[in-house]
C-alpha cells in the first residue's frame, strides 16, 4: 500500500528501469553462449563425423555405437546404477529427514551441519574413505572377521554392491537437502490433526507427510540420479575396470583412444538418457502434486 502511494508520482520510472535492469544479465548471457552453449553445439556436430581425424562427415559413429549390443548394456547399467542409488538414498535418507522434523531447533542445527559437511568434502576424499572402509583390510571385513561371520575377507571393492553403498553416502546430502527444505515448511498442525483423528504415525506418514513432501523427494531423486550416473571417479575407483559405465567409455574414447566422434556419441547418449529419466521423474512429481491440490 505505502509503496504504491510513494511510487505513484513516478509513472515512467519503472519501465525505463526494467530495460536497464534486464541488460545487467548480458555479460553472463554472452559468457554462457560462448563457453557453454557453443561447446555443446560443437559436441553435437562432432558426433556426425566418421573418423577420429574429424574430416569426413557422416553417421558412422552413431551407427557404430548403436550397432554394438554392448552399448545398450552399458547405457542400461548406467541408468540402473543411478536408480539403485536413488532407491538406497530414499530408503535411508527419508527417515532421517522425518527425524529432523521432530528434533529441537538446536539439534536440528547440529544434524544439518553433519549432513552438509560431507557435501563440502571433495568427492575424491569421500570415494577414498570408502576404499578404506570396504577394502580387504577395511573396517567392514575386519569387523565381520572379528565377529566370526566370515572366515575370508569379502570382495566389496570392484563390485556393484560396494559401488552402490559408497554412492549412497556420497550422494546422500543431495537427497536430504531438498527433502528437509520442504519438510521444515510443513505445517506441524497437520500431523497433530491426523493423530487427533486417530491415525497411527505410520498412517500419518503415508497419507499426510509423504504426499506433501513429494516436491522435495522428487528434487532429491533428480539430483542424486544426475550426480551418480556421471560420478566418474567413484565409478572407476570403487567399481574398478570390469564394471563399465558410460562416463568410463567417454573417457576412454576421448583421452585414451582419441576418437572424439565416438566419445561425442557416447556423451550425447548419456545426456539424452539421463535427461529423459529426469524429465519423466519430474513429470511424475508434478502430476502427483497437482493431483494433491486438485
Amino acid at each position: 500500500m505505502t509503496s504504491a502511494v510513494i511510487a505513484a508520482p513516478l509513472p515512467d520510472e519503472p519501465r525505463r528501469l526494467r530495460l536497464a535492469e534486464w541488460q545487467l544479465a548480458l555479460p553472463l548471457m554472452l559468457a554462457f553462449a560462448a563457453l557453454f552453449l557453443a561447446p555443446l553445439l560443437l559436441l553435437i556436430a562432432t558426433s556426425f563425423f566418421n573418423d577420429d581425424k574429424i574430416t569426413e562427415p557422416g553417421f558412422a559413429s552413431w551407427l557404430k555405437f548403436f550397432g554394438d549390443p554392448f552399448s545398450y548394456k552399458i547405457i542400461l547399467d548406467t541408468l540402473l546404477l543411478g536408480l539403485k542409488t536413488v532407491c538406497a538414498t530414499v530408503v535411508i535418507g527419508y527417515p532421517l529427514a522425518l527425524v529432523y522434523m521432530d528434533l529441537a531447533p538446536r539439534l536440528q542445527k547440529v544434524l544439518l551441519f553433519v549432513i552438509i559437511m560431507p557435501m563440502l568434502l571433495s568427492v575424491v576424499v569421500r570415494t577414498f574413505a570408502w576404499i578404506v572402509v570396504l577394502g580387504r583390510e577395511g573396517v567392514v571385513n575386519q569387523g565381520l572377521l572379528w565377529l566370526g561371520v566370515i572366515s575370508e575377507p569379502l570382495k566389496l571393492l570392484q563390485t556393484e554392491l560396494g559401488l552402490v553403498i559408497s554412492l549412497t553416502q556420497i550422494e546422500m546430502p543431495l537427497m536430504l537437502l531438498p527433502l528437509i527444505s520442504v519438510m521444515s515448511r510443513l505445517d506441524p498442525n497437520l500431523r497433530d490433526a491426523s493423530a487427533a483423528l486417530g491415525a497411527s504415525r505410520w498412517r500419518t506418514l503415508f497419507t499426510v507427510i509423504v504426499p506433501l513432501s513429494m516436491p522435495g523427494l522428487v528434487a532429491g531423486c533428480l539430483l542424486v540420479f544426475a550426480s551418480s550416473t556421471t560420478a566418474f571417479i567413484s565409478q572407476t575407483v570403487i567399481g574398478g575396470v570390469r564394471l563399465i559405465y558410460l562416463p568410463l567409455v567417454i573417457w576412454q574414447q576421448s583421452l585414451v583412444v582419441y576418437h572424439w566422434p565416438l566419445a561425442a556419441v557416447a556423451s550425447l547418449s548419456l545426456v539424452v538418457s539421463v535427461l529423459t529419466v529426469i524429465a519423466a521423474l519430474s513429470y511424475l512429481g508434478r502430476r502427483s502434486s497437482r493431483h494433491l491440490q486438485g
Binding site: 544426475a226 561425442a264 545426456v271
Partner: peptide, 21 residues
C-alpha cells in the same frame, strides 16, 4: 538456462569444452 549446468552430466560438458577449445 543458466541453471542447466547443474543437471547436465558434467562429463559431457567436460568433453564438449575439450573439443571446443
Amino acid at each position: 538456462l543458466f541453471m542447466s549446468p547443474l543437471v547436465l552430466p558434467g562429463i559431457a560438458f567436460g568433453l564438449a569444452a575439450l573439443v571446443y577449445f
